[in-house]
């Protein structure tokens, strides 16, 4: 016997969470784009998405984050550190790949110097994932050894019932357990069968890929140049990636005051590594693309023991020139050994 949450209880559920001090976020469609947004009722949510176009990362590592507010005075500059709002949030309906993305980035933001901006939000958020029942051509979680029912990064995991009436509910962390304690009356004991998890075929042999990437002589391989020829160097793959975390710090303001902000940046941009001297270690698109792949499937793992990819497939889905991690890794795993 497991507990289930019925779809028709969702409004009550949201109300209960709000009463418990949570803001509730879920996939929404707004202005011709799907993303996570705050919802007040179940009908605000967009359940029919395989995956929202924007990732949940936006809410933990926003595209632009004020760090320090400063005022320029005659004698001194007053500065005030800005912190993210201290609000408790429930993210409902997160896909396992997006939740995994958060878990993948945790060690980076936590090692040595703890990034308060990330963790203040992480600590105050409960991630309620819904196991996938659908996958599209671009989904590739299984290829990176995750799955449509992975509980990585999740606090509560929901499995859709086969009849579509609701979800089987399971807490997978303490935070999740605590969240469910706010809605005991809305959960019922039940043993309805759950909907089948889609079969997502593995698109490449990750072991082979990692092995090839780890091999030093491949670093200068012609492969990188060929595969990245059509890359136009935009940042859409990185900005829509649930794990990409590069940023820039910029001061923005006028004569009297301003704000130091942390803004997303992308290793695809040609100026990303440009030294002031004019020297640019990664001065071609192929070296930048190589960096992106190497970082995700070699360096990051070397540092944090995990690949920096959760297999959501957005990079390919959104690419204006139909590139993406999948194609590159496929090509690598198909290379003759």
């Amino acid at each position: 016997m497991t507990r289930i949450l019925l779809r028709n209880k969702l409004d009550d559920c949201i109300a209960a969470w709000q009463k418990a001090g949570f803001s509730v976020f879920a996939p929404v469609r707004q202005h011709e784009m799907s993303s996570f947004g705050e919802v007040q009722k179940a009908s605000d949510m967009a359940f029919d998405l395989v995956l929202p176009e924007r990732t949940i990362k936006d809410h933990f590592f926003p595209q632009t984050e004020p760090l320090i507010k400063y005022k320029i005075g005659k004698q001194q500059i007053d500065s005030e550190t800005m912190t993210p709002p201290d609000r408790k949030r429930v993210f409902f309906g997160v896909r396992p790949c997006d939740a995994s993305g958060l878990a993948i980035d945790d060690p980076l933001f936590g090692w040595d110097y703890k990034d308060d901006y990330w963790f203040r939000r992480r600590d105050n958020s409960v991630i309620v994932t819904i196991v996938c029942t659908e996958a599209d051509d671009f989904c590739m979680c299984t290829s990176v050894k995750l799955s449509p029912e992975s509980d990585k990064g999740a606090d509560v995991m929901l499995r859709p019932l086969a009849n579509g009436a609701g979800w089987q509910v399971e807490a997978v962390s303490e935070r999740g357990t605590a969240l469910l304690e706010t809605i005991p009356s809305l959960l019922q004991e039940n043993s309805e069968p759950t909907a089948p998890v889609p079969q997502v075929a593995e698109k490449f042999d990750l072991e082979k890929v990692m092995e090839w990437l780890a091999s030093k002589e491949n670093f200068e391989s012609q492969f990188w140049k060929d595969i990245s020829l059509r890359c136009v160097g935009c940042g859409s793959c990185t900005f829509l990636c649930p794990t990409c975390h590069c940023f820039d710090i910029q001061d923005e303001g006028d004569t009297y005051a301003g704000i130091r902000r942390k803004n997303w940046d992308s290793c695809s941009f040609s100026l990303f590594t440009m030294h002031t001297s004019g020297h640019n270690p990664r001065n071609t698109q192929s070296t930048r693309w190589r960096q992106r792949i190497m970082h995700k499937f070699n360096y990051y793992r070397g540092k944090f023991g995990v690949n920096s990819c959760s297999g959501c497939g957005r990079c390919t889905r959104q690419c204006p020139v139909d590139m993406g991690i999948t194609e590159t890794l496929q090509a690598i795993s198909n290379l003759p050994r």
Partner: peptide
């Protein structure tokens, strides 16, 4: 405002545009 608030400055519009050839 609704549309531009979504912009993430990924510069995909610029990068795919043949007219955006400025080096900087």
């Amino acid at each position: 405002k609704a549309h531009f608030s979504k912009c993430i400055k990924c510069y995909a519009c610029r990068q795919v545009c043949p007219m955006c050839y400025c080096r900087r």
